[in-house]
Amino acid sequence: MILEVDDLVLQVLGFAREDMVGHRSTDFIHADDHEQAFSSWVRMLGDPQKPYTIQVRHRTASGRWLWVEAINTVDTGDEASVETELTLIDRPADDRTTVSSQLLRHLAEALPFGIAQIDSDRAIVFSNGKLDDVCGQANGDHLDDRFGLIVATDLPVLDAAVKSVLAGDDSEIELSLSHPHRGVRRCAIILSALVGRSGYGTTGALLCVTDITDDARQRAEIIRRAVQDGLTACLNRAAILDVLTTAVAGCTDAAGVAVLFFDLDRFKQINDTHGHAAGDHLLVAVGERLRDGSRDADVGRLGGDEFLVIARGVPSAEQADRLGQRLAQKVRRPVKLRDTVIRPAISVGVAWSADPAADASSLVAQADAAMYRAKRRGAS
């Protein structure tokens, strides 16, 4: 923090005293020179008997940058204070540096993803045009401004990742934002810590932002196809059995798991009489009715006309039986098949357990056996 400046400094730089006193010295030093300034400051505090000299660009009141040589010396009478002597110097532009900077900027603008460089205060030091396109925000010099369209539920994800990278830990995250022209978009962000060449701490971070909406949709579709029955949209056999294994492991004395095995009666006759398309229509209707009637449960199709419903948090076998009968009644409502209406006949078998060590396959077998007993009794 600047405590005092002399008149000559104010004259050369064009500031009023109140423009500098009370402000951080880094507010007047070019961002590209912050690393050098910080490093010199730390070395000086480690060896307060020795003055340290650096060359940096200092801002003037008109917004120009002047090269100065700064000699920093710890005040012998007050080690909490440092005296800085500024000397104007003439440093011609380095053509190689200028060309390199232009090349890097052109390269950054050509990249297919957004780039944002932030300092330790989350202020944006550099960004390319693609960042505006991806984020839908072109204004703002702070990270929170440029990422202001992120959906509220993902804001803590970004905040935690930024805090982590500014502490030196790289990370990758995904989040959604409400683009003003493209609707909700899914973005991937790679956060990389920027560490000074001196090795002292993290000076900021680099964020690479990519719109992955199409990739996310394709990924979701692949996952959906991997777990979903293609005809009925219920879970497929492998997926529903995985659900059962997880549900059994979470059983407690007060919250067991119910396994409900459903099988359509005389389904072959329906196929033979009305055709396989009508049979498929009936299977779709059964799947929809089971899902609608058991919103807190998982519904899967084992194959053919067999369905499995897994319900968690069922406190007793009696309640599991009542759930099975209620769902069966829902399925038995009339269904229109082409030019006719039929009332589906279905049998249900129920198994229940509150033992987290129970065998999932055995529970399915018990429910299957109970279903066949019901079928033999002529349940319809």
Rank of each mutant, 00 (worst) to 15 (best):
P356M: 10
R186L: 02
D75T: 05
E69Q: 11
A108K: 10
V99P: 00
E83D: 09
Q366T: 08
S101P: 00
T73D: 12
N72P: 00
E288V: 08
D214T: 15
L260Q: 01
V9A: 13
K375L: 07
Q102D: 15
A258Q: 02
D298S: 15
L131E: 00
A188C: 07
P356R: 04
V364Q: 01
L327C: 04
Q11A: 14
A354T: 06
W65I: 01
R96V: 11
D296L: 13
E35F: 01
A255W: 06
K50Q: 11
T273D: 12
Y200M: 11
R224T: 12
D215I: 14
D94H: 11
D368F: 03
S101K: 12
D33H: 06
D119R: 03
D145C: 08
R237H: 15
K375A: 05
T202S: 08
A31E: 10
S347P: 01
E109I: 01
I189S: 04
P112S: 09
T252E: 14
N72L: 12
D47V: 04
A31S: 12
G324V: 03
L131W: 01
L207D: 07
N72E: 14
A365N: 10
S120M: 10
D145R: 05
I342S: 12
R96A: 13
M20L: 13
V134A: 03
V209M: 03
G378V: 10
F267P: 09
V157C: 04
S176M: 05
